[in-house]
Amino acid sequence: MKRRDFIKATAASAAVVCGPETALARPNLEPAENAVGMLFDSTLCVGCKACVSKCKEVNSMPPVIEGDKLSWDSARDLSPKTLNVIKVYKDGTAESKDQEVDGFCFEKRSCMHCVDPGCVSVCPVTAMRRDPLTGIVTYHADACIGCRNCMVGCPYNVPQFEYDEAFGQIQKCQMCNQAGVERINNGQMTGCAEACPTGATLFGTRKELLKEAKQRMAMKEGEIYNYPRGDLSKPDHYHEKAIPAYQQHIWGEKEAGGTNVMHISAIPFDKLGMPPLKERSSASIAEGVQHSIYNYLALPAIALAGLSFVIRKNINEDTEDQGGNS
């Protein structure tokens, strides 16, 4: 093979992969038709952490003990022992709630249940799956090899590996629907939504929740709104409260293909630790590149055939020239 030919062939295949729109790029995945999810309204959260303790109860998670204070669950972030945690945003004197400067607010951290989940896309052994009906992103330890690519591939750092166990596994929120819990399948709502006294964590289908969120956005600040609690399709309570100064942004409507767990807040989301995501999911780009190269293994097969032919020819020539073996 001539060097020029080789470079030509290489450049051609590179062009296939790296073109402005790779040959087999796919769009973001669409939400499941009846995807269930949650809406977290940071302005309603009073920081009671009912959701944190209920989550631990439902998922049989131990408290996180810091130092020798044995009395309190002091989880600082998501971990293999904590699938859901309430964090505080504080600025300056932290005087008023839902105020960006000199204010504070609470923010929930738990799996966002992406519509186009990075963890599912990157998992080599299909241990992460998106439920086709509910859209819940589930984890299956029996398949998992512990490579932790899901952790790297998750924009929100949600999956957490049990580093401290000799035989650990990944832990993540599965919307209280994992085998043995199955609250959603039994017609219940998630533990956190059930426990939340203010409806800051609201359970429902993605469609309903998105509608609810947009309705709140559309109202004027100060207007009285009847906030539902629990399950949006059949709220157990309502309570009246004035509409706060919402950011006109529903986190999870579009970010990286959207999420089934959506957030709204009076404070910009970058202050609340949300990642700088674009509308296109990274997973869709990675898969586009991967499939451009490996679709039906056509490209590698052609390359192998070509290489075999060239190499065989070259070896034979060498052997004839030198009479030696390789």
Binding site: V122, G146, F167
Partner: peptide
């Protein structure tokens, strides 16, 4: 580095394969 090394062979079992995964390749 595999967290669940005792199940490493899963990556060689075709019914586990996720063809979208770069790491599988």
């Amino acid at each position: 580095d595999m967290g669940r090394w005792w199940q490493f062979y899963n990556i060689f079992l075709p019914w586990h394969w996720n063809f979208n995964s770069v790491l599988l390749e």
